Computed example of a mutant assay.
Amino acid sequence: MKNVAIALTLLVGLVGGANAKGDAEAGKAKSTTCMACHGAVGNKTLLNTYPKLAGQHADYIVKQLKEFKSGVRKDPTMAGMVATLTEQDMMDLAAFYESQTATYGTTPENVVEVARKLYLGGDMERNIASCISCHGPRGNGSGLAKFPKISSQNAEYIAAQLKKFRSGERANDPSGMMVDTAKKLTDAEIDALSKYLGGLH
């Protein structure tokens, strides 16, 4: 059933994507209010609990912005930031950030054993899907399927999101895939996976 849900998500992404595209130059001009938390090009963050946006798939960014605006994804700060954005604004911002290059991170040696096993193979005994099945071998995800690029992402941000998925505080994932996976992860596994992604590039 899980494979069917993933296939449907991919199909919707392939046939249902908008033809309209964002303008990266226009997005750069509109990004000034984003810089305080995400940096000039989406790499430098005020706190590592904010995500890097550089190199992120435009379709994924647009989806998140729309869901912050609608309230499907709840965050008081982002709700205020997106309140006046039009869909074109969102597409322009997404095009700008997608056109940037993410800075590489590193992976601490002490998390590799635990994290690599989960990332590559999941845990069949606990019915945990592998991360690679949606996010790919290098964590690059898929723009069409709206699976985010997670390589080189801030570990603190990834950990916070996994815990939000686990608790149900965040539930805007396709077919509940992340909620289903995260609720089976321990704090130690979340910590290891979050740190592992920094050097996955």
Rank of each mutant, 00 (worst) to 15 (best):
L162A: 02
A54M: 01
T106M: 08
C134T: 11
L8T: 13
G17V: 08
R73G: 05
G16T: 08
P76D: 11
A36C: 02
F165H: 01
P108K: 12
N154M: 00
A182D: 02
Y119K: 05
Q100D: 07
G71R: 01
A182P: 03
A79R: 05
V62E: 06
L47G: 02
N172I: 12
N48W: 09
E169H: 06
K66D: 06
A79H: 07
E109G: 09
Y50H: 08
E113D: 14
A26N: 13
D123T: 04
S130D: 12
V62W: 07
D89M: 10
T101D: 13
I158A: 02
K63L: 05
K2A: 14
G136L: 11
A160M: 14
R73H: 01
E189R: 04
V4F: 15
E113H: 02
K66N: 08
A54K: 09
P174T: 08
T101Y: 00
G168S: 02
A40L: 14
Q161N: 14
C37P: 00
T186G: 05
Q100L: 09
A40F: 14
G139T: 06
E189H: 03
T32S: 14
T32H: 14
V111F: 06
T181W: 07
Q161A: 08
K184E: 08
G198V: 10
Q153N: 13
L193R: 11
S175N: 15
M90S: 01
E87N: 11
M1N: 04
S152Y: 12
L8H: 08
A24R: 11
K2H: 14
A102P: 05
N43R: 08
E125I: 06
S175W: 07
